[in-house]
Amino acid sequence: MTNLPDVPLPSAIRSRYVENINGLAMHVLEAGFETRGRPCLLLLHGFPELAYSWRKVMPALADAGYHVMAPDLRGYGRTTGWNASYDGDLAPFRLTNLVRDTLGLVSAFGYRAVASVIGHDFGSPVAAWCALLRPDVFRSVALMSTPFAAPPSLPFDTAEKPARPHPEDPVHRELAGLPRPRKHYQWYYSTREANADMHRAPQGVHDFLRAYYHHKSADWKDNKPYPLKSWSAGELAKLPTYYVMDLGKTMAETVAAEMPDAAAIAANKWLPDRELAFYSEEYTRTGFQGGLQWYRCGTSGAFNAELQTWSGKTIDVPSCFISGRQDWGTYQRPGVFETMQTTACTRMLGCHLIEGAGHWVQQEQPEQVSRLLLKFVKQAREGVSA
């Protein structure tokens, strides 16, 4: 990795590598590293993002006295040691092993506990499982854009009435049978073709990412989310096409229809083209399959039995949820936003929907996100109730 260009970072953040993290050489961004003994905050990115996605909030968190770490997670960016072959072993990308990655990183930096683990998008379930499995290490958790539903349930009370085999979810067949045939993006992301569709997008990786980020941001004016009534084809079809796609389209084709014009791109303050260029250069180099493996772990159901080990367990450390008010991610799984607050998290100190932000909340509204995170971590450390 020594021949790669420098990451374009604010002066308060440095880029480094840490070896032997659960088989990875992990690329990590750090802020607040100048003095030892600071409490630690660990930031976990989502898809298709990188540690770089936290560049706008890290300096503010460090200025408040924290050692802030944001790694390129397994399958992403400049972290190496992973194999994203479609026909390779999915097990290294399952949630419990991603928790092991984060534990290894924390331990490598000499921490037995961190003040908070903070996850956005697919980093949110990883952060949630960190808090669920090792509350002694991850003393609080902030979930961003993706609510947590709780571990999958075990079959219950089946000794006298054995459980039937779990039927195939009919929603995919029903989506395909709609008058406007559709498909769910997570199952599309699990196909063999998805990586090439994006990596070899007709418009190029840079313009693909520009359209993708725009489509899911508050800049796309049709992002006006609301709760869905059920996990059914009729309800899911209300989601934007970046979540429930037209059946015959790739993701590159889907977002191309919403590509902003040159004036809108020039006016974009939260992701100017020079910053987007870092994402596009990294994904041009690595492809997208490393991140897509995470989706495959979920849609395949291959690791549900392992996760059922913690059936009925709740997140009992202080928690909070932060999302953009214009982010459909809050509601894409009907009922989960409500379950998180009533059942899955027992010490939730707040749910915040930030106006003027879509899915990329820490990039679209970094000042508000920094303020809410610092308030939450202070409350969690002081044992303050909501």
Rank of each mutant, 00 (worst) to 15 (best):
A31W: 00
R371P: 07
T35D: 14
R38P: 10
H120N: 08
T80C: 10
E168F: 10
G324S: 07
A252E: 11
V114Y: 04
W294V: 00
L43S: 05
E253M: 12
I21P: 02
G248M: 10
P10G: 09
A150H: 12
L24P: 06
S217T: 05
L43N: 02
A115V: 02
F93E: 01
E160K: 13
P334S: 02
Y212S: 14
S323F: 05
F122C: 06
V369N: 01
W231M: 10
G358R: 14
V255W: 00
L209I: 00
M1E: 03
G383S: 06
N83Q: 07
W270K: 03
E282Y: 00
L349F: 10
F93W: 10
H352I: 04
P227I: 03
L44V: 15
S190P: 02
A218M: 13
A127G: 09
P225V: 03
Y185F: 13
Y242E: 10
T191H: 09
R164C: 11
A264Q: 13
L228Q: 09
F156S: 13
F321R: 01
P135S: 07
V114D: 02
I13D: 11
A344C: 08
T80G: 05
Y331N: 07
A266M: 06
A113H: 13
S300C: 12
R74D: 04
G358F: 12
A108Y: 04
D197Y: 04
A115Q: 02
K313C: 14
H214Q: 12
H67M: 03
A256C: 12
V114L: 06
G335L: 12
Y283D: 01
K375H: 13
A237K: 05
R296T: 01
R16C: 14
A127M: 08
T330R: 10
V384W: 09
I322C: 05
Y52T: 05
W82R: 03
E281W: 08
Q186D: 09
L105Q: 02
K161M: 12
T286K: 01
G123N: 12
L154H: 13
H359V: 14
S232W: 03
P179V: 08
P202S: 12
C320F: 03
E49P: 07
M58I: 05
A264V: 10
R112F: 12
Q289R: 13
V137Y: 05
W187S: 14
A302R: 08
V255S: 01
G335Y: 06
R347D: 15
Y212V: 02
A252M: 09
